[in-house]
Nucleic acid binder design. Structure first.
Length: 256
DNA sequence: ATGGTAGTAAAACTA
C-alpha cells in the first residue's frame, strides 16, 4: 500500500501535476493540503475519472484539505470533536487502519494570535488522539505539520531558529506526538541524513538548486504500522513540471 | 537585506 501527502498550494492550479501523479505513481491514497477551493468548485470529477473517490472540505482562497483514495473508507469525518478545524483535519477509517490528514496552521509570527492558534491546534490533536485512539491501533497521521523537528530538517538552523516552524514550542508539540506513540517514518528510513526537504519558499531565489528547504511535511504512524513501513521518501519529480507547488509529495510504502 | 513569489482574488492578505 502506497500513501502520499502533498501540499498543493491550490488544487485547481496544480491539476497538471496531481492528475499525472495519480496516473503515473498510482498511490492508494493521496492526502492533499491547501486546496484553497470551496466545496462546490472542487474538481472531484477529475479524481473519479481516474478511479479515486475524493473527500474534501474547504473554502475559497484559504486552507482546505482533501483525501483521494482507491480504497473505500468505512467512515469519513472532518475536524476535531468540537467541530473546529474542519478545513484542516480529516479522519478516514478503513477496515484495517485509520488515517488523519492535517494542515496545521503556519503561525505567521511568534507573537501573532495565529501562533497561539497553532499551539492550540496541536493540543486539540493530542487530546483527540488520547480520546479516540490507542498507540496500539493502526494509525497514520500525515500532512503539512508546519514543524521542522530537528536541526537537520532545515537548511540554516542557526539563522532560522525562532521561526514559527522552527522553535521550542513547536518542537515540544511534535515531540509530544512521538511520545504518545507515533514514529516519523521519513526519519525511520533516513536516520541522521540532512538535506531532505519537502518545502522550498517561492521567495528564495533558486531555493531548490541551492538546497534552501525545510522538512515540514510528515507521515507519522503508530508502532504497529511503522513496523510494516517498507520505505518513506520525498518525491522531487513533481518539481520538474511547470508551476510546481512550493511543497513536494512525501510517500510511504506499507506491506498491508 | 525585514526583501523575495505565487496563490486567492480584484485590493490586500496569506504562506
Amino acid at each position: 500500500m502506497k500513501i502520499a501527502t502533498f501540499n498543493v498550494n491550490s488544487i485547481r492550479s496544480r491539476l497538471h501535476i496531481v492528475l499525472p501523479y495519480l496516473e503515473e505513481e498510482s498511490p492508494d491514497i493521496l492526502c492533499l493540503q491547501e486546496t484553497k477551493v470551496s466545496d462546490d468548485l472542487f474538481p472531484k470529477e477529475e479524481f473519479k475519472k481516474r478511479g479515486y473517490e475524493v473527500y474534501f472540505k474547504g473554502e475559497k482562497g484559504k486552507s482546505g484539505i482533501a483525501v483521494a483514495t482507491k480504497i473505500k473508507p468505512v467512515e469519513v469525518d472532518f475536524g476535531f470533536s468540537d467541530k473546529t478545524e474542519e478545513d484542516r483535519v480529516s479522519i478516514l477509517k478503513f477496515d484495517n487502519f485509520s488515517l488523519i490528514n492535517l494542515y496545521v496552521p503556519q503561525g505567521r509570527k511568534p507573537d501573532h494570535p495565529e501562533f497561539k492558534h497553532k499551539l492550540e491546534f496541536f493540543e486539540k490533536l493530542l487530546n483527540y488522539l488520547e480520546k479516540n485512539f490507542s498507540p496500539e491501533d493502526n494509525l497514520i497521521i500525515c500532512g503539512d505539520l508546519n514543524v521542522a523537528p530537528t536541526e537537520i530538517d532545515v537548511h540554516s538552523p542557526k539563522k532560522l531558529k525562532g521561526h514559527v516552524c522552527f522553535r521550542e514550542e513547536v518542537w515540544e508539540a511534535f515531540q509530544k506526538l512521538l511520545d504518545w506513540g507515533l514514529v516519523d517514518l521519513f526519519r525511520l528510513h533516513h536516520p541522521n541524513e540532512p538535506g531532505h526537504y519537502t518545502f522550498f519558499d517561492y521567495r528564495v531565489k533558486d531555493a531548490v538548486k541551492r538546497g534552501l528547504g525545510w522538512r515540514v511535511d510528515h507521515i507519522l504512524a503508530t508502532k504497529p504500522l511503522a513496523q510494516k513501513c517498507k520505505d518513506c521518501f520525498i518525491d522531487m519529480k513533481p518539481r520538474l513540471k511547470e508551476k510546481p507547488s512550493d511543497h513536494t509529495p512525501l510517500v510511504a510504502i506499507f506491506s498491508l
